[in-house]
Design a protein around this nucleic acid. Sequence first.
DNA 1: GATGCTTACGATACCCGTAAAGATA
DNA 2: TATCTTTACGGGTATCGTAAGCATC
Lengths: 311, 311
Amino acid sequence: MNFQQLRIIRETVRRNFNLTEVANTLYTAQSGVSKHIKDLEDELGVALFVRKGKRLLGLTEPGKELLPVVERILLDTQNIKRLADQFAKRDEGHLALATTHTQACYALPPVVSRFKQTFPRVHLELHQCGPKEIVALLRAGQVDIGIATEAVGVEEDLVSFPYYQWQHAVIVPEGHPLTQVVPLTLEAIAEFPLITYHEGYTGRARIDAAFAEQGLVTDIVMSALDADVIKSYVELGLGVGIIAAMAYHPKRDAGLVVLESKGLFELNTTWIALRRGHYLRDYALRFIEYCSPNLTEERIRDSVFPKSHGV
Amino acid sequence: MNFQQLRIIRETVRRNFNLTEVANTLYTAQSGVSKHIKDLEDELGVALFVRKGKRLLGLTEPGKELLPVVERILLDTQNIKRLADQFAKRDEGHLALATTHTQACYALPPVVSRFKQTFPRVHLELHQCGPKEIVALLRAGQVDIGIATEAVGVEEDLVSFPYYQWQHAVIVPEGHPLTQVVPLTLEAIAEFPLITYHEGYTGRARIDAAFAEQGLVTDIVMSALDADVIKSYVELGLGVGIIAAMAYHPKRDAGLVVLESKGLFELNTTWIALRRGHYLRDYALRFIEYCSPNLTEERIRDSVFPKSHGV
DNA sequence: GATGCTTACGATACCCGTAAAGATA
DNA sequence: TATCTTTACGGGTATCGTAAGCATC
């Protein structure tokens, strides 16, 4: 048994049992991939893959049970390397984040700039993507930290921590009839065509829920991934915008007004998600601490590396 | 990085940084051991060992942090093998127990015989040793299950479950003056020379505690590792014996009488100890279940493989 | 001087890649 | 037929063991 064999096992599952692809992603030849699988199966004395003729179709029972152990081993080899780098070059390295547009634009900038000042030699890699991709990137070990408002933390192999809470805000062009409605109600808003986020993004579910709860039917004429797009179309008069409150800048968004909307929508929580067992460099923990001071190194480490198992 | 390097790192620590010994226990040459360590340190970019000239003295800081990860990886490689064997030969294999004389003689025989009937092809290996060795054997992964009355479960990397409870009994030769004392008291017992277990064995601590609590000074003229030895000397009239109640057989121990001693000594609990993260074959879990029916497979697995970490 | 670590060197075994052949859709 | 897997074979590399050279105690 060697590491290459384990990498091949893992990659074979990831690549849907296409050994040619496996070979390509691991930068090696198919022949070797085949042989490694065969060798390992011989050594263990059980077939790990279900075959139909020469094609691999899936995992056998033993294969299914072995896979998580294989993944843990490979995760640990990465951990060893990260740990070593930690000492070799203390404040030098790489930090990969996956986050949505909203967080990248409005919540993270101050954190990132503070981080960059303290750790100028750490290369920051910012993956901007949707919540599902964030989970996938964390799982694959391609990013160290995920930040999103939805769809994290439900999974067994991820942990998440509350980062901050925020509310949605209603924006309209100057002089819009809604500016006269005080106090503002959902009922009044629902009279107008709406522009807001795509489903599954930036608390959209909370918006829908708020209207649904009062039995209001909304006319969402447009949806977008980010507030900037929404603002543009609100400015053109296509409808009333509902965006994350922190996405509105009085100065930059001069043609728009934000309406008092306290209590209309439920609070949203943005989460910091991590992969269990994924070793984090000191500066990664500092980054998290910059996000929210009560997310201490100790608290994070305890959750990412659950007690016991020394495994 | 390869497995041999990791094995060498682990073994170097275990063998107190004597590379010659490491080479011997791993059945390889010192030269290779040296080179492997050097190669790994080069690859990781940090020194793992503190050196004085050519001698290795201990682990560096990074070495200390890496060691648990290395051990987890090696543990997982064993787990892979055990898992595979599980499927390759379902009811065939190996089960190693470490237990004290008392348990081996008096508690386990019915369990073992039932186990052997159900799993005739499993080779049972019974290590008889003291509590400390049991812990060491579990830690080293040399046994799957440890059974003892003391000194288990205090350690982070082991888990233990209550197996059964029992009491000490007082035995004397026929016609001994103590047979007249009803009810029996510790005070009366302390008048006579005593023969019982060595310190650290079979609940000896509880015996001492019982006398000490009443301010009684005892004259322990002999101590032994097992009840058979104690019984022999009690029979010779050297003193009053205090042994585990289950070690007395009315038929086999014809020349001895057991005295009613309810309430004199505190109850003892015998524990089943396991190593966290050490994969257990199905039949090992069955063995534990035979010991105590409420120790179900599910309960054991949950404790040995703590939640989360997929890992 | 005994023990222990490192380096050098030759033999072996392992791993990889090319290429050809066979299987599958 | 095109794609994919296996097997065979040659070249390169890494690992291992022997042996010699040094450091440490």
